[in-house]
Amino acid sequence: MGIWSFLSATLQHVRGYIVIDEFLEHAPRGQQIQRSIVTVIGMHRSGTSAIAKGLECLGLNMGDALIAPGEDNPRGYWEDAEVLRINKEVLERLNIAWNDTRIVPEALFLGDALTDLHDQAGKLLINRADQYAMWGFKDPRTLRVLPFWLHAAELSGVNLQFVVALRHPYTVALSLQKRNGISLTRGQLMWAAYTLPFLPLIKNHPHVFISYDDLLEQPALILEKIALHLALSIDENKLKNYIERFLSQSLRHHSVSLHDEEYAKNVLPLLDKTYHILTAMKQNEDVVQWVLLASCYEEYQRYQNILEEFDAESDYHWKRRGSFLKRLIYG
């Protein structure tokens, strides 16, 4: 074969690979390889870290790019550093503080202002799914920006599965008050801002509701429940190690008692009602409960003007919007 014939044949061979690569990149959704990723979602201080660690017993890998443990979570956050970076950037661009209470329209998370971040998130999902046989991620902010991740997953052909961490809003507020000095009212409203708007978006995805209290009291049973819903299997040795070395009742610093005078005085009735609807879902989810949840959200939306003023005048909100020096001081 002459040199020109050889070069021509080689070029055709290379072009063939280019065509195949372009086909795979632009193929219809149904022709793409389906990758599944598990994400733990839930409000801050709802046991998402403990649940994420427990998923390792089911063969899930949270990855090697995890942020370091902190003073408020010495056993680890189990949060991918890149997921955290993207979530923070989404909130920053949309001018949302992590402790805001106002309702944010779903459309904001799908707009052109986040196009490059959608691309980054999609590539991250694909890369992690290719790197690990079964990968999962967790960051409480994910629930607040959930439409963003669902859109990124759809664009990249990734199937998201959800483990939803549930904890009573008043208990969450107590924990936030101790850790951040946030008022009980704001803490509960934050729970609503994270929980109510976008949770129904997971209905058509594999998902399971998990109570943090149940996990602490019956870890083996709860992990079996997750395994059943997500079609995974439990490693008994890892489960034993998780229960004996990781979990302890010391993880639960606050619990709700219906007979507590402070609880009766400070709990927000609408959110208490919402929580009990969600806890009913973890037992026997049906369409009626989703309708009831939507009714709670509709009632919550009536307070949007108040919530916006609450955020605008809040000292916490101001700290999150200030100069670099203020950010350095207040985080």
Rank of each mutant, 00 (worst) to 15 (best):
L143E: 08
C57Y: 10
V288A: 11
F198R: 00
A231Q: 14
M281L: 06
A65T: 13
Q120Y: 10
G136L: 05
L189T: 06
K282A: 04
A81T: 13
H13A: 08
R45Q: 07
N284I: 02
V145P: 01
A129R: 06
F198Q: 00
E224N: 14
K238F: 06
Q218R: 15
A153V: 10
T10Y: 12
L125K: 05
D112T: 14
C296M: 07
N237I: 13
A50N: 08
A227F: 14
Y316D: 10
A68C: 08
R144F: 11
G76A: 01
A52V: 07
L160A: 04
W4K: 15
P197A: 02
V38I: 15
L146I: 06
Y132R: 07
E298D: 11
A294G: 07
V145C: 02
S175C: 00
E224C: 07
F198H: 09
V267D: 01
D116I: 13
N95T: 14
V19K: 14
L176W: 11
A81N: 12
E224K: 15
L125M: 13
H229C: 09
T274Q: 03
V208F: 06
P140S: 00
Q304T: 09
L94G: 02
S36R: 15
G122Y: 10
A192C: 04
W98N: 00
L201W: 09
H205G: 00
F310W: 13
Q304K: 05
L201K: 14
T185Y: 09
W191G: 02
V158N: 03
